[in-house]
Each structure stands twice: as C-alpha cells, then as structure tokens.
C-alpha cells in the first residue's frame, strides 16, 4: 500500500533539494463554494528558502526568493517590492514546501488518511500567531500533489501541483533576482 503520508513527506524533504512544476490555486469560502476564479502558474524551489512562484492567470505576478530577500515583481505596475525573506515567507505554502527542512519545528504533524488517491499529512501550527489554522498536504509517489491551507477565517486555499519535477538541474545563481530595467523599487 502507499507509504503513510509522514514517511513520504520525510523522504520528500530529505531527498528533494530542488523542484519545479505547475500549480493551480483555488480560494474556497468558509462555508464551501468558490470564492474567486482559480489562479495558476509555475513554481521552482531550492532549499532552503529559494523559490520562484509565478502567477500567470488570471493575473501576472512574480514572487522570487533568493534565500535572503523576497522580490515581488508586478509588471502591470512596473514595480518591484523587496522584503526581508524571514517574515515574508512566514507561514505561506512556499514556507511549508520550500522553507527550512524541519516542518516539525513549527507544526505538529499527524496522519490524515487517504483521500482522492493521495495520502494526507496534517500540520497544525504550534504557535497561535501564524495565519493558518491547519494545513494538509496530499502526497502520492513520494511527492506533494495537493495542499489545503485553512486560515483563521475558515476559508481554505487549495493548491494542486502538476508536472512536479524533483531535483532538476539548477544553476548556482538561478534564484538570483535580476532587477528589470526602469522599474520602481519599493524597499520594505
């Protein structure tokens, strides 16, 4: 049978230094039902704390972390916002998958059983100040296929991943952000 979620996740974290693929994100209202149109795009990450999260539809925005800083590039506004990575990554989906390895430091992990052909891992934040009430990660064949993030409002952000490629060849400064010419820079 499919290895339990916790084992799969630990193996995933230990064996995955970098990954890339496509994502779809759907916000669900507290009482169920879709809150807004789904968004989709591509993601790349390398531990610890490097990622490129690109929203393509229905809007355009790039979020890139080089391990120290988070750059948010908004083409429509011709603007790049630069933030310290620490608090910016916070408890976002990126932090769970791409952050430092020890998820168990900040979350209590437990098995949440099988559903939709995946083994699910439940992660409940140990500290109360994070924006999440609960996160569940669906794994299959040792890689995360879906994530559900329930925030303190009871609304849930459902992420699904496709074309998940583990440890693709990535050049050393692949995650270094190249500031586009002529953009307005907002340091925070």
């Amino acid at each position: 049978a499919e290895a339990a979620a916790l084992d799969q996740f630990k193996t995933f974290v230990a064996s995955t230094k970098s990954a890339r693929g496509e994502f779809t994100q759907q916000q669900m209202k507290a009482g169920g039902g879709k809150a807004a149109a789904p968004s989709s795009g591509t993601f790349e990450f390398a531990r610890p704390g490097k990622f490129i999260w690109t929203y393509q539809k229905p809007y355009d925005q790039l979020l890139q972390a080089d391990g120290e800083k988070l750059y948010i590039y908004d083409k429509d506004l011709n603007q790049v916002t630069v933030k310290k990575l620490g608090d910016a990554l916070g408890s976002s989906p990126a932090a769970i998958l791409f952050g430092s390895n020890d998820l168990e430091k900040n979350f209590t992990l437990s098995e949440a059983g099988a559903k939709d052909g995946m083994e699910w891992l439940k992660a409940v934040p140990k500290t109360q100040d994070t924006t999440f009430e609960q996160i569940t990660i669906g794994l299959r064949d040792g890689t995360p296929q879906a994530m559900e993030l329930k925030d303190n409002f009871g609304s849930v952000s459902v992420l699904s991943f496709r074309k998940f490629e583990k440890n693709p060849p990535v050049s050393a400064n692949h995650f270094k952000f190249v500031m586009p010419k002529g953009v307005e820079i907002s340091q925070q």
Partner: peptide, 13 residues
C-alpha cells in the same frame, strides 16, 4: 471585501 497576501492568505475581511 477580502484582503489577501500575495500568496493567498486572508489578511482582513
């Protein structure tokens, strides 16, 4: 009006 973070976490309602 729901205000969310760039990565989709609800900030204020």
């Amino acid at each position: 009006v729901t205000i969310l973070s760039p990565l989709g976490q609800t900030v204020a309602y």
